[in-house]
Design a protein around this nucleic acid. Structure first.
Length: 302
RNA sequence: GGUGCCAUAGCUCAGUUGGUAGAGCAACGGACUGAAAAUCCGUGUGUCCCUGGUUCAAUUCCAGGUGGCACCA
């Protein structure tokens, strides 16, 4: 039988954690988290890291393994997760991956182009340029350095332009030359499962979950990292809104409502990404038995 | 019980000197290749409370009704 990675996706708050555990237990396997925020050890309540009992019931990877002060991104995840999978597949026929970060999932399943890591100084210099000259300054520079990418990039998106520029400047080669758009092939089979439910139910789950986070002490957790509020890892729903509250820009109630809204919007953004992926087979959150039956059947095909 | 004010999008409201309507918020759709819980783009979704009258034409004017609010009893 071919080694298989089961990828469980779904919008935030739908219940991926518990379903993934059921699947992993059924296959006596382990879980890889593909979540760009649950990797940070300083965060737990706001990122909805699995409960202690859940973590004990099944071995999890990439949960609170890195610091918010480290550089972390989809490419690092791809590298680390592939290495880990190599080990796991020596012990298991099946491994489960779950998490909401679609770019990370994509990086692992299809690969991400091989692009050098950006020097901090180059990025900082470009951010400065962006602040003084605005988007137009960056655009102009990109048009000169990499007209090919200029023609296809979203010219209103500063991050895209900034990234293309920093790569081009650092390597001396246009960013587009690194963009192969090739799918990497993996030495294992991938089966994608999605869980979702109707929008109203999803939203009430999300709103409830935020209330529970607050009861568990989200505000205290946010306070503990408040002094680092500028860093990217803390540009995160559940924290950035509370930072605004700490700064006195909004009230606590407003912050809570904002967290709920931004979480709902995040779920929608995830769903928009999932819709594009026709290889996902969808189920309702409580259908874990059906999911396992489906997976058993699928695995027995070969 | 009386008087006055109000009734328009999911919410708060604007508006149409009569030609079936628009802002904010919410909501919805999309993009996405090393910051991705990030970043960016796009979309009004409507029995204009109900019934009747005037009119070529009523969400708009008139009358009545219903509901809400305020004040007086």
């Amino acid at each position: 039988m071919k080694k298989t990675l089961i990828v469980l996706v779904g919008p935030t708050g739908i219940g991926k954690t518990s379903t993934a555990i059921k699947i992993a237990q059924h296959f006596k396997s382990e879980i890889i988290s593909s979540d760009s925020r649950q990797v940070y050890k300083e965060l737990s309540i706001g990122t909805a890291v699995p409960e202690t009992e859940e973590l004990q019931s099944c071995k999890h990877h990439f949960i609170q393994t890195h610091s918010i002060h480290e550089d972390y991104n989809a490419s690092i995840f791809e590298f680390e997760a592939l290495k880990l999978l190599e080990n796991l597949f020596q012990k298991h026929e099946v491994v489960v991956m779950t998490g909401g970060s679609m770019l990370y999932i994509d990086a692992l399943c299809n690969g991400i182009d091989d692009i050098p890591t950006v020097d901090k100084e180059i990025r900082d210099a470009l951010v400065k340029k962006f602040e003084s000259e605005g988007l137009d300054g960056l655009r102009l520079q990109l048009k000169k350095i990499d007209p090919e990418y200029y023609a296809e990039v979203d010219l209103k998106n500063p991050k895209r332009i900034l990234h293309a520029l920093e790569i081009s400047i650092m390597t001396g080669k246009p960013y587009s030359s690194f963009r192969t758009k090739e799918k990497k092939t993996r030495p294992f089979r991938i089966i994608k499962i999605g869980i979702n439910t109707d929008r109203q139910a999803l939203y009430s789950r999300i709103n409830q979950r935020v209330d529970i986070m607050l009861q568990k002490g989200l505000i205290e957790e946010a306070k503990n990292v408040y002094s680092h509020k500028g860093i990217n890892s803390l540009n995160t729903v559940g924290y950035k809104e509370l930072f605004s509250f700490f700064d006195g820009e909004i009230s606590e109630d407003e912050a809570v409502e904002l967290i709920k809204k931004n979480t709902r919007n995040y779920a929608r953004k995830q769903l928009s990404w999932f819709r594009r992926d026709k290889t996902i087979t969808w189920f309702e959150p409580e259908q874990s038995d059906e999911i396992i039956n489906y997976l058993d059947a699928k695995l027995n095909e070969n």
